[in-house]
């Protein structure tokens, strides 16, 4: 039980990941899909950030009397990943706008039915 609870950060990450994944798959609204994708990505960010934490460690700033630091590298890495995520979201939303212009809808089913007859 202790290990299950002790790994709570993983549980949160997995829960968020599955939520995001579900939204991406289940929702027909293109904007909602992107929201889902964001949740999915955030889950991974949390995973990274939490793994850099060293129990009892301080912020990674050199200071007198501090011997244990959290690992800063995952945080830096995830900063990059967040930027990538933002770019993806921006591009995705831009595409949704263009799709809305072209089809007059952002619902996947409507788009399909418009393309079918061709």
């Amino acid at each position: 039980m202790a290990t299950v609870l002790g790994l709570y950060n993983y549980w949160i990450a997995i829960f968020l990941m599955m939520t995001g994944f579900y939204v991406v798959i289940a929702h027909g609204n293109l904007v909602k899909k992107i929201v889902g994708l964001n949740i999915f990505q955030v889950a991974v960010f949390i995973l990274y950030i939490s793994m850099g934490k060293v129990r009892g460690g301080s912020a990674p700033i050199l200071a007198e009397g501090v011997t244990s630091y959290s690992n800063p590298l995952p945080h830096v890495l995830i900063l990059t990943a967040i930027v990538v995520g933002v770019a993806t979201t921006a591009l995705g939303l831009a595409l949704v706008i263009r799709i809305n212009e072209a089809y007059g809808t952002v619902e996947e089913d409507d788009i399909h039915s418009q393309d079918e007859p061709e």
């Binding site: 991406v24 899909k33 994708l37 999915f40 990505q41 995705g92 072209a102």
Partner: peptide, 20 residues
């Protein structure tokens, strides 16, 4: 073709999942 937009969108979703 306007379907390029939806194709690109789906690629974005799946590609991002893959990258993640």
């Amino acid at each position: 073709d306007r379907r390029a937009l939806t194709a690109s969108y789906h690629y974005l979703i799946l590609g991002t999942i893959g990258a993640t």
